[in-house]
């Protein structure tokens, strides 16, 4: 029993951090350089076995990468691209898997907006779309998807709504248990991204609490601010620990994995949304400006929280399950 990362996993995290620090600036759109670096580093295939053309690590390493993308508040269709590679690999489409891994495709994410329409994230610049609906999960050519852009709550995550269904022959498709499997990994990766966001807001609030002075002292000395920071840190830590636990249950294909992924999603959503909101409050007037980056975490947390279901959908499924082992 050991919930801490191995030294190899720690190294993966430092490498991802270094790449992001070098090629990503908070508040800037996704650059080609970061996308190519991600492909070179194997981020899109990190969790797939070598037999499926993958890097040969597991969902644990995959979730560590996604967590860092959350921490950096990096925009870009990383989640859907990683999951499209899962779908392609499980569907036996080796060519597509390899192309996604090489960074040749940016994959948009289409989920139900209502019974008729889909909401699509990251469509501009995408060559493929990952479609999630009641039939399962499939990868289609972006040419099949006609959608009208709407103003996005997060300017760096473009959003478009379709007029109707998404049709067209899929390049890879999963249904039944295979689809459930990929969606479970997807929900865990969403939780990891949310846990990263939650942690990033702690860093931002604590730095400001030490730096900003009022009444002749750093505001972080005041309990009103200090206690909010302590709560933020606790929520972020709880989320990270549960994400790590759930990732191990998925890697090991344990029977209680779905239970733990639900739990991870619930605590991580709460951590990311609450923390990002309180982070604005901790910054006062400057936190309310467009120029400051605090709002980036607020809107990104909302976007992540609505990927592949919601906290509420995971609450329903968690309560319906039998107790964990």
């Amino acid at each position: 029993m050991d919930l801490l990362p191995t030294s190899e996993q720690d190294e993966i995290v430092s490498t991802v951090r270094a790449v992001l620090a070098d090629r990503h600036q908070l508040g800037e759109p996704l650059g080609d350089e970061l996308w190519s670096a991600a492909a070179e580093q194997g981020w899109f295939l990190i969790g797939l076995p070598e037999s499926a053309g993958g890097v040969g690590y597991s969902i644990i390493e995959e979730s560590l990468v996604m967590r860092e993308l959350g921490t950096a508040c990096a925009p870009g269709p990383f989640l859907a691209t990683v999951l499209a590679a899962h779908v392609a690999a499980l569907a036996g489409n080796a060519e597509l898997t390899a192309a996604i891994g090489a960074g040749s495709h940016r994959v948009a994410l289409a989920e139900r907006l209502d019974p008729e329409r889909f909401a699509v994230q990251d469509l501009p610049g995408a060559s493929l779309v990952l479609v999630v609906d009641e039939a399962g999960i499939r990868v289609v050519d972006a040419a099949h998807v006609s959608a009208s852009a709407v103003d996005s709550i997060d300017e760096l995550v473009p959003v478009a709504y379709t007029d109707g269904a998404i049709t067209g022959e899929p390049l890879a498709a999963l249904s039944g248990d295979d689809a459930i499997d990929v969606l479970l990994d997807g929900a865990l990766l969403v939780a990891a991204g949310l846990a990263g966001l939650a942690e990033a807001t702690v860093t931002q609030s604590v730095a400001y609490g030490k730096d900003r002075e009022q009444f002749g002292q750093p505001i972080g000395a005041f309990q009103a601010v200090k206690h909010r920071c302590a709560d933020m840190a606790t929520r972020a830590e709880i989320a990270s620990c549960q994400v790590a636990y759930a990732a191990i249950t998925r890697r090991d294909r344990r029977d209680d994995a779905a239970f733990h992924v639900d739990a991870a999603r619930i605590v991580a959503t709460r951590a990311a949304i609450d923390n990002s909101q309180i982070n604005v409050q901790n910054h006062g007037g400057i936190g309310f400006t467009w120029e400051h980056t605090a709002h980036r975490f607020v809107t990104r947390a909302r976007v992540w929280s609505l990927r592949l279901g919601s906290s509420a959908s995971h609450q329903s499924s968690l309560l319906a399950r039998s107790a964990a082992d």
Binding site: I238, A239, C241, Q242, H260, A264, V267
Partner: peptide, 8 residues
């Protein structure tokens, strides 16, 4: 979810 995460 919270007691589960507390155990983690």
């Amino acid at each position: 979810a919270e007691v589960t995460a507390l155990r983690a």
